[in-house]
């Protein structure tokens, strides 16, 4: 097994995917975003359940989602979900794609790139109303 390992791969220390280095930090971030999104999901099912109480109760709780601070938290939520999704696809490619483990480090940069390309316009469109309410000239 060891004798068949190409020289270029032997230069890498063993266990670089999840132990130490970037691979470990993507894994740590995967856990943190996962736990955060799970707790939000919990609250979100509870607040949506208010549609069974009354239209007024639901509209009242949804009004908090439209406030500037919660609007900013929504951007954070979308950022967390998007990272979790993109890095999740990276994990699937590492596990099932033949070349996956070899290009796992390059795939981190793809994840970061796609995340930025989606989040920059995404943040703008998510916050148009808040930006307008806080800084806009319209009364």
């Amino acid at each position: 097994m060891a004798s068949k390992t190409p020289v270029s791969l032997r230069a890498l220390p063993i266990g670089t995917l999840y132990r130490g280095g970037e691979g470990m930090w993507t894994w740590v971030l995967q856990r943190i975003t996962g736990v955060s999104v799970f707790f939000f999901l919990f609250v979100h099912v509870l607040d949506t359940a208010l549609v069974r109480v009354s239209p007024e109760a639901y509209d009242l709780i949804i009004a908090t989602y439209k406030t500037p601070i919660v609007n900013l938290l929504e951007v954070g939520l979308v950022g967390a979900v998007l990272y979790h999704a993109l890095n999740g696809i990276r994990i699937i490619l590492i596990d099932f794609w033949k070349r996956g483990p070899r290009v796992q480090r390059q795939m981190i940069w793809v994840v970061a790139g796609v995340w930025l390309v989606v989040m920059i316009p995404g943040t703008y469109y998510m916050m148009i109303h808040t930006i307008d309410a806080l800084f806009g000239s319209t009364p």
Binding site: P55, Y58, I62, L77, V81, L82, M126, H129
Partner: peptide, 22 residues
């Protein structure tokens, strides 16, 4: 991601959500 796009970005985002929308 489809849910987040529809609810937060498309057509006015979260500002248009209320009981009638649901």
């Amino acid at each position: 991601l489809g849910h987040l796009f529809i609810m937060n970005i498309l057509d006015g985002g979260v500002q248009r959500i209320n009981f009638a929308f649901v």
